[in-house]
Amino acid sequence: MSKILYITEKVMTLEEKRAWIRLVVAVAAYGGYVVVVLGRAAGRPPAEAPYAAALLWSVGAAIVAAIVAEVVAGAVNPKASRAKDVRDREIGRLGDYVGQSFVTIGAVAAMLMAVAGWDRFWIANVIYLCFALSAVLGNVTKVVVYRGNFPQW
């Protein structure tokens, strides 16, 4: 039987690579931020640690790292398809839909914490945590669907 029936080559589309990159970057950026802030706290309560600069650097570095990684990934493996089709768009929408729930949770939590007079440290950090969870959950969804079945409801 012809070899065309059993193509085993695993080449990801650019959109699948982007999902992987954004997943890894989100985990690394948030993990790095947590390590830095807990290190600065040095045994004190976390809310007393200087966090603002680390948070802004973490967000900025994540954006730059994702852009650079996507450019490099496209240049390193030019065989990978750069096209974006209807399946990519459907998977993208599904991932964004799943991840968006955490953005809403973060916004509502931050609003309630502000009303209740919580320290700014906790308000800023609950928002960042939910952004990170949104990126992780959304991109995990995309990767799982790219690797497996597109769900039917």
């Binding site: 990801m12 089709d85 399946r87 990519d88």
Partner: peptide, 13 residues
């Protein structure tokens, strides 16, 4: 479409 989409359709995914 992309080849990955054809593969996914063929495999019933």
């Amino acid at each position: 479409v992309t080849r990955q989409t054809v593969i996914a359709i063929e495999q019933g995914r």
